[in-house]
Amino acid sequence: MTLPVTGTAALFLSVVFGFAFGFLLHRGRVADYNTIVRQFLFQDFTVLKIMMTAIIVGGVGVFLMVQFGYAKFHIKPADLLAVSLGAALFGVGMVLYGYCPGTALAAIGGGSLHALVGAGGMLVGGIVYALTFDWVKATILPVGALGRVQLHTLLGISPWAIFAALAVVALTLFVAVERASAKRA
C-alpha cells in the first residue's frame, strides 16, 4: 500500500524535510568546515559517527518502508569501475572542499561564503560529467558492470544480517574512537 503525496503537499513536505535535514546537519556540527577537516586529520570523529548512524538507521527505515509497501526499491546498476572512480573523485573533492554536497548546502544556508564559492565547483563538475557522459557510458560503465543487483543478493544472505554486521562495525568503531579520544585528553 502506497500513500501518494503529490503536488503542493509534496512541495511543502520537501521544504519541511529539507529544513529539518539542514537543521540536523548544523546541530550535529557536520555543516562546519572545521569538523570535516578534523575528521580527515583523525582528530574529530563526529562525521564518522553521524554517517554510520545515518547509514544504519536510514537503511533499516527504507527496507521497512519497502517491506510494508510504502516505498519501492529503484536499484541502480552496480558498475564497479564507475563507482570506484566516483568514490575516489568524491573523496578528493571532499578533502579539498571541506564539505560533501549536503553539508555544503547546509553551510551555504548558514551563510558560509566559502561554501558558496565551492558550490560553483560542484556545478562545473556536473556540467563536465554531462558533457562527457557518452564517453563515460562507452568506456567506464561497462567495466565491472554487475547489473541491477543488491548486496544481500550477491552475498546470498539476509539484508538483516548486513544491517546487524554494520551495527556491530559501527559500535566497534564508536568504542575505539571514544577510547582513543579519552587517551588523548
Score class of each variant (00 low, 15 high):
175 V>N: 03
58 G>M: 05
61 G>K: 00
29 R>C: 05
139 T>Q: 15
137 K>E: 13
182 A>W: 11
90 F>S: 04
78 A>G: 08
177 V>E: 13
11 L>M: 09
30 V>A: 08
123 L>H: 02
71 A>E: 01
60 V>H: 03
47 V>E: 01
31 A>M: 06
169 V>N: 07
25 L>H: 02
67 Q>W: 10
99 Y>M: 07
38 R>N: 11
22 G>E: 09
5 V>W: 10
12 F>D: 07
110 G>K: 04
46 T>P: 04
168 V>S: 07
92 V>R: 02
33 Y>M: 00
127 I>W: 11
8 T>F: 13
133 F>N: 04
141 L>V: 11
95 V>I: 14
27 R>N: 10
112 S>D: 09
81 L>W: 10
149 V>R: 06
49 K>R: 15
130 A>Q: 12
114 H>L: 12
19 F>I: 12
74 H>T: 14
64 L>H: 03
119 A>Q: 12
17 F>D: 07
60 V>F: 02
160 W>P: 06
77 P>M: 02
79 D>Y: 12
179 R>F: 09
93 G>R: 06
155 L>C: 02
87 A>H: 13
164 A>V: 09
18 G>C: 10
105 L>D: 02
88 A>G: 15
146 L>T: 03
11 L>Y: 13
23 F>E: 10
131 L>I: 09
44 D>L: 07
96 L>N: 05
64 L>A: 12
29 R>I: 06
65 M>Y: 12
60 V>W: 00
134 D>T: 11
173 L>P: 03
103 T>V: 06
38 R>I: 00
150 Q>L: 07
115 A>W: 06
160 W>H: 05
165 A>Y: 04
162 I>A: 00
171 L>G: 14
45 F>D: 05
132 T>V: 01
82 A>Q: 09
184 R>K: 13
141 L>T: 11
16 V>H: 10
106 A>V: 00
40 F>S: 06
82 A>L: 14
34 N>K: 11
